[in-house]
Design a protein around this nucleic acid. Structure first.
Lengths: 344, 344
DNA sequence: TAATTTTCATGTAACGTTTCATGAAATAAT
DNA sequence: ATTATTTCATGAAACGTTACATGAAAATTA
C-alpha cells in the first residue's frame, strides 16, 4: 500500500492527452470516445486500445470543474445513527446513485449552529443541491442553492416532502379501534416547531373522534426526560392497571422507550396495552419492525426529494408533497385472530 | 428556489478573477488571501472587502483538480441501515471531517459484485482512499489506491483495524462467570471467512476454560435462518428449562434475535438466561444498549482508520491494529447487586 | 547617496477535461 | 470532371484554481 502523496507522484495517472498521443489522434477525439459520441470506427478502436493499454480513467473532478456541476447532493439530517435517519440516508443515497449523483452525508447532531454551517459549507462546495430534514427553527434557507425540505415547510419557494402525517395519525386511531381499544393516548415529545409531524396528533384526534375512542394527549416539552411519561402513566393507573388500553407514540423511538417504562410498571404489551409507533423502524436491516407502526414510505420519499431537487422545470411544483403511509404489525398490537382480552 | 441549471446561468458565481478586478489586485494576491498566506495589510483588506461584497467562495473542485487530490475518502460497508455500520459511518465521517476530508458513503448491500464495482468507481473517481469493511471473499484490493480494512486482514500491505476480538471474547466469558453462570454457549452465524471477528470464539473459549465454565459452540451456516437457534435451544432443554444459564452472541444483532426466540420458548432474560452480545449497539442514538454487550471502541477505530489512511509516512505501519473493548450493562445480565438465582 | 538585500504583488502556466469553430477529406450532385 | 455538400478529426480556448518565476518597490547596509 502506498501513502497518499507518494502515489500521486509515482503514477502520474494517464490523461486524455497521453491517450491521444498513444493512439496518435487528437485530444477531442479521445473525449468523444470516452463520452460515447460518434467517432469513426477506426479511430474508436485505436483510442479504446490506447485507453486499455494505459489504464486511463477520466478525472471526474476535471469534468465537474468544466461542467460547473458537482453531481453531489448533501443530505442534512440530525444524526446518521438513529435508525429512521439512517434508513432515510440509505434510500436517498440509492435514489441519487440511480441518477449518477453522489451523496454527501451531513450529521447536524441536533446542533442548530452546525446546520447553518453545513448550508454555508454546501454553498461553498458548490453542491448541486441540498435535501434537509432540520429542526433548527431559525435556519436560513435562501434561493442560492436548490433545497428540498423533509417534514417541514419553509415557504412557497421550498418544496417539502413528507409522509401523510395526518392520514397516518388517523390510521393509528383506526387500527387501535379495530383491535378493540377504548381508551387511548397520544404520546409526543417537544419540538413545538410547526413541522409536518405535528399533524400526526390532529390526524389521531380526528380518527379517535370518528371511531368514538376516549383519548388523551400527553406532550412533553423539548428538554423533558422521557421519564415524564412514567409519571403520566402512574397518574393514570387504577387498581394497578393502566386506564389506557392503547397508545399511539409519535415515533417508534418513543414507542420503544415507552415499552421499557411500561415493563417497569408491570404492564404487558400487547396484552394490557397495545402500542402503535410511527416511522416503520426495523431493528436490523430488513428484520422485524420494533413495534407495530405506521410505516413511512421511505423509498418513495427519497425518490420524490431527488426528483424535485433535480427536475429540470420546476413549474407547478407543489410546495408540499404528502406520501401515503401504511400500517405494519410489529408485535405490540393484538390483531384479529389473536386472543382478545376482556376490555373495560 | 431555482432549478439547478437555471441557477448556474443566472448567477455566474464570482471567481477569484472577479474578486481581483473588484479589489484592483492580481489574481495571485486573492489566492494568497483566501489561503491565509502572508499578504500586505492594505491588500488583504481590499481583497477581503471585495470577497464580502461579491459573496465569493472558492470552488473546491478547481482546488481539487489543481491538487490532484479530492479530499474524499470512500467508506465501504455492507449496509448503512444496520445500527453498527451506521454508527461506524458516523464516527468515520466525524474523524474525516476533523481533517477536512469528505466521506463518500457506499452501501455494498452484501453484494460481492457491488463491492468490487465500488472499488473501481473509487479508483475512477480518484478518491484519496478507501476504508472498507467487506465480506466478499475474492475482493481484489491492489496497491492502486490507499486502503484500510476493518475487521479483516488482506495481507502485509493492507493495514487492518479491528476491536480486540480475542480479548472481547475472553471478557464475555469472564463477565458471565462473574455473574454466576456455569453452563454457557457461544452463538454465531456464518461467514466462515477468516476475518477478525472469528477470534471472538477462540477468546470466549479461552475465557471459559480459564474460568471453568462448561461451554458449547453453535455456529450456523451462512445461509441458515436464525430459527436454527430455536431448534438448538429445544435440543438443550431439561424440564422446560434451558440448560444454559449464559449466552454469548457474536453480535448484538444476533443477541436481539435470540432474545425473541427465548421469549417464544418461555425463557426469561436475564432471570433464566443471561445474554452478552458484541458491538455496543444502542437503539436510538445515545440511549440504552439493546443488551449487555462487549462494546467496540468505534470512535477509536474510526480515528485509527483515518490516521492510517492519511498518515504521511507508512513506515512501521502494523498490519493489524487491535483496539481494546469494554463491557457495558444492557439489561440482559444479572450484575452484582441484582437478585441471584439458585443455579443448577 | 549609492549599492545591496529583502519583501512581496504580479501575471503566466498548468491541472484534465469539454466545447466549438476550423478546415480537410470524403461523398453526392451536376 | 467539377462543384456543392456532408462528415468528422483537429486543436485551441475555457473552466477556477495554485505555484512559481519575475521584477518593482521598500528596507538595509556601506
Amino acid at each position: 500500500m502506498k501513502t497518499i502523496d507518494t502515489m500521486k507522484k509515482e503514477h502520474h495517472a494517464p490523461t486524455m492527452k497521453d491517450v491521444a498521443n498513444e493512439a496518435g489522434v487528437a485530444l477531442g477525439t479521445v473525449s468523444k470516445v470516452v463520452n460515447g459520441l460518434p467517432v469513426g470506427e477506426a479511430y474508436r478502436v485505436r483510442v479504446e486500445d490506447a485507453i486499455k493499454k494505459l489504464g486511463y480513467r477520466v478525472n471526474v473532478y476535471a469534468q465537474d470543474l468544466k461542467a460547473s456541476k458537482t453531481y453531489t447532493v448533501a443530505l442534512l439530517i440530525p444524526n446518521t445513527q438513529i435508525p429512521f435517519f439512517a434508513s432515510l440516508a440509505y434510500q436517498v443515497n440509492l435514489a441519487l446513485l440511480k441518477r449518477s449523483y453522489r451523496m454527501l452525508l451531513c450529521s447536524t447532531d441536533f446542533d442548530s449552529g452546525l446546520e447553518q454551517r453545513y448550508i454555508e459549507l454546501a454553498r461553498g462546495q458548490k453542491l448541486d443541491g441540498i435535501i434537509g430534514l432540520t429542526y433548527n427553527p431559525d435556519l436560513i434557507v435562501d434561493d442560492d442553492i436548490p433545497f428540498v425540505s423533509i417534514d417541514r415547510q419553509f415557504g412557497a419557494n421550498i418544496p417539502c416532502v413528507a409522509s401523510d402525517n395526518f392520514a397516518g395519525g388517523q390510521l393509528a386511531a383506526e387500527k387501535l379501534a379495530d383491535f378493540g381499544c377504548k381508551n387511548v393516548a397520544f404520546l409526543r415529545i417537544g419540538s413545538s416547531l410547526s413541522n409536518e409531524p405535528n399533524k400526526r396528533k390532529s390526524g389521531f384526534e380526528n380518527g379517535c373522534l370518528a371511531r368514538g375512542l376516549n383519548y388523551e394527549m400527553k406532550i412533553l416539552n423539548d428538554g423533558d426526560s422521557l421519564d415524564e411519561f412514567e409519571l403520566f402513566f402512574k397518574e393514570h393507573m387504577k387498581d394497578g392497571r393502566l386506564v389506557f388500553d392503547g397508545l399511539f407514540c409519535v415515533t417508534d423511538s418513543i414507542a420503544y422507550s415507552v415499552m421499557q417504562i411500561l415493563r417497569r410498571l408491570g404492564q404487558r404489551v400487547p396484552e394490557d396495552v397495545q402500542i402503535i409507533g410511527y416511522d416503520g423502524t426495523r431493528m436490523f436491516g430488513d428484520m422485524d419492525y420494533i413495534c407495530s407502526t405506521i410505516v413511512q414510505p421511505l423509498p418513495d420519499i427519497a425518490e420524490m426529494c431527488v426528483d424535485l431537487l433535480l427536475q429540470e422545470s420546476r413549474t407547478g411544483t407543489p410546495p408540499l408533497v404528502c406520501l401515503p403511509t401504511t400500517y405494519a404489525y410489529g408485535g405490540t398490537t393484538r390483531e384479529a385472530g389473536e386472543t382478545t382480552r376482556n376490555n373495560v
